[in-house]
Amino acid sequence: MDRVPVLKIGDILLVSIQVDMDDNTALALQDTLTERIVETSAHGVIIDITALDIVDSFIGRMLSTIASVSRVLDAETVVVGMRPAVAITLVELGLSLTGVRTALNVERAMELLELSRPARASSLSVVGDGLDVFDDDSPVA
């Protein structure tokens, strides 16, 4: 099974999928990415699928799941580099990629994530370092 590397650039995680993933590789990536978001307190995830010549329902579901999970962990996911033929096929297949933001390339995705940062910064200063949320076992009053 291949592994897909996850790179950290500032508070953004960058994943460039370069292999034809089998389903287990896709699931492993989903898990790794979730762990890394928490570890690094990343505020953005960019998934580059330029090298993928197809996105089937399994990969599509993985992208949707990563977007949903990262949102719960206060990180925004942007998928970049979808090929036109892949986009046409996805729509015909009936996959809507619910909740997944897209951008044409990594640069545009960075800009998108930059725009959504100020709001996050102010909410973060209220809750301290943010990770307290996960350590706090005491019930909410």
Partner: peptide
């Protein structure tokens, strides 16, 4: 064509799974 290749390969992926 590229689009037809992509459609066929995607269909094959679903059916093989």
């Amino acid at each position: 064509s590229l689009v037809d290749q992509t459609k066929l390969v995607t269909a094959a992926s679903e059916l093989a799974r």
